[in-house]
Computed example of a mutant assay.
Amino acid sequence: MSKVAITRSADYEPKNVQQAMEEGFELLGGVERYIKPGQKVLLKVNVLSAKKPEQNVTTHPQVIGQLIDILHNHGCEVLVGDSSGGNMVEGNPTEKALKITGIADVVKEKKAKLINFDNQGVEILQGGDVFPKLYVAKPVLEADVVISVAKFKTHGLTLMTGGVKNMFGAVPGRQKANYHKEAQTIDSFCRGLVELYSAVKPHFTVVDGIMAMEGNGPSAGKSKYCGTIVMSPDAISADRVLADILNCGYKDVLTTCYGAEKGLGVGKLEDIEILGTQPKELGITPFVLPNTKMVSKLPGFLTSMAVSLMQVIPDIEDEGCTGCSFCINSCPVDAMELSENKKAVIDYDHCISCYCCHELCPQKTIELRHNNRLGKLVSKLLNRRL
């Protein structure tokens, strides 16, 4: 039976975070059960974009810092790294994100090693049906132990980002956008993520759920207080428990059920032993889910009609757009451009609804909206029942 530990931390005060993680390790048998002294441990964190910690888009630096302390005390060499989303004409988005998120500072303070996956070289591995070739940053493959240090958030494309989705950052640079181009449906993209996960499967997962995100995440949703940290040697099981907190079922998070079907972890609650605080004891109200999720709640015989009815598209608010072009440079199919008045515009004839622009907009001016008024009404009605 797989095991998942749920512990509480009221806030990001260092002593509270450290106590929660130490308790989690103890519930799961101790750090020594998973990591040996002297090993090189890579913390694969979530550095999606250049957002401040209080915006709750990325792994909080205090979670990273306290985990570094625990591993240093265990005699480990600790590295911290990721590759952020997006593409810039000048400069590197990951370098900028590591600074703005406060992660670079805490890594320096704790005397660990900071790694930008974008400039550390890449290994090309055999993939699967969706992603025939897997481009993986070398540090992920060279570490003795990899810990996925994820952020608990809803996600417009995958419904939820946790331990499994977090490993998408093991793909450096522009190649992440290329994968969106290769897998243009939610189903195919999630299957591709599982193919990648099978190659970069972490040894352990820690999920920062002290402050989470609901709604149209992973960057433009609303912060939600959960006061918890979820830990497990099985990211599939950790994500299943997170989905239960989210108030979603086994098949709602496709990366969980597809990963479990491939034998990469345990995805059914009845086969998972939850240690510490139980989900119902957390007192967390059901999350507001992304607009993009609602279609799957309709009966199967309505699916083809529902796809048209419930279609969700990225929509740019002109007033908030600064014309920075980050979304344009990051679009995997070049479906965006600047207008004459220096505002980003979308060519919907070429848009593949990967929502990268929504995910990466620095100003949060790109919303996910229903292309059909009736679809919007149905979405609201369904969301009340979730």
Rank of each mutant, 00 (worst) to 15 (best):
F204C: 08
F204L: 13
T205E: 08
V207K: 02
V207D: 01
V207S: 05
D208N: 12
D208H: 13
D208G: 09
G209F: 03
I210G: 02
I210Y: 04
I210N: 03
A212H: 03
A212W: 02
E214W: 07
G215N: 09
G215W: 06
G217M: 06
P218M: 03
S219V: 07
S219E: 01
A220T: 10
A220D: 01
A220V: 05
G221E: 04
G221I: 06
K222H: 05
K222C: 05
K222I: 10
K224P: 06
K224Y: 06
Y225V: 04
Y225E: 11
C226Q: 01
G227N: 07
T228Y: 00
I229G: 02
I229P: 02
V230H: 00
V230S: 04
V230K: 03
M231C: 02
S232P: 12
P233F: 06
P233E: 09
A235G: 10
I236E: 11
S237Q: 11
S237R: 09
A238G: 01
A238N: 03
D239F: 09
D239G: 10
D239H: 09
D239N: 10
R240H: 02
V241Y: 01
L242R: 06
L242N: 07
A243W: 02
D244M: 11
D244Y: 10
D244F: 07
C248N: 02
G249M: 13
K251A: 11
D252V: 05
V253L: 14
V253E: 01
T255H: 15
T256N: 15
C257F: 15
C257M: 04
C257P: 00
Y258T: 08
G259S: 11
G259E: 07
A260Q: 12
E261K: 14
E261G: 02
L264E: 11
G265C: 12
G265R: 13
V266A: 04
G267D: 13
D271P: 12
I272L: 13
I272H: 10
I272A: 12
G276A: 03
T277H: 02
Q278L: 10
E281K: 01
E281L: 00
G283Y: 01
I284W: 05
I284V: 15
I284K: 07
T285L: 09
F287D: 06
V288D: 10
V288L: 12
T292G: 03
T292F: 01
M294R: 12
S296E: 15
P299S: 14
F301Q: 10
F301C: 04
F301S: 09
L302P: 08
L302H: 07
T303A: 14
S304F: 08
S304W: 13
M305Q: 15
A306F: 09
V307F: 15
V307I: 15
L309W: 14
M310P: 04
Q311K: 15
V312R: 01
V312H: 04
V312F: 06
I313H: 02
I313K: 07
P314H: 05
I316W: 08
D318S: 14
